[in-house]
């Protein structure tokens, strides 16, 4: 068993990357590997609560991401600076993700066998 980190840096809608990162994290867990997921840059927009993508005829990514802890995606992390830069309140996030500073992210990456950056 190896330790994987999936990094997602895109907003939930507008490109397919956020969904593809979520799919990859779930697939990695499904294949019985240790995997965590890091939201950074615009990826922190995925943590906003009350998303309503039906208005743009898209599936709700946030609803799908609620399954991440159930599928043993071990830890969810977000970049605290990215959140702050975008004016998002950490009290109201849609997922139980933990804040990391940029230097903590560097050490998280060093602990991995492999990183998937989608």
């Amino acid at each position: 068993m190896k330790q994987f980190l999936v990094i997602t840096s895109n907003a939930p809608y507008g490109t397919s990357q956020a969904r593809e990162a979520t799919d990859l994290a779930l697939a990695t867990a499904l294949f019985e590997q240790k995997v965590s997921l890091l939201f950074q840059g615009d990826g922190v927009f995925q943590l906003l609560p009350d998303q309503n993508p039906a208005a743009i005829e898209q599936k709700n990514l946030s609803a799908m991401q609620q399954a991440l802890p159930l599928y043993d995606v071990e830890d969810l992390f977000y970049c605290a600076e990215s959140l702050q830069e975008r004016g998002i309140e950490s009290r109201t996030l849609a997922l139980p993700a933990k804040a990391l500073t940029r230097s903590e992210i560097a050490s998280l990456i060093r602990q991995q066998d492999h990183v998937f950056h989608v």
Binding site: K2, L24, A27, L30, F31, H114
Partner: peptide
């Protein structure tokens, strides 16, 4: 499928 990516990475 994506499992082929995970298996290869392992």
């Amino acid at each position: 499928g994506l499992g082929q990516l995970v298996a290869s990475a392992v």
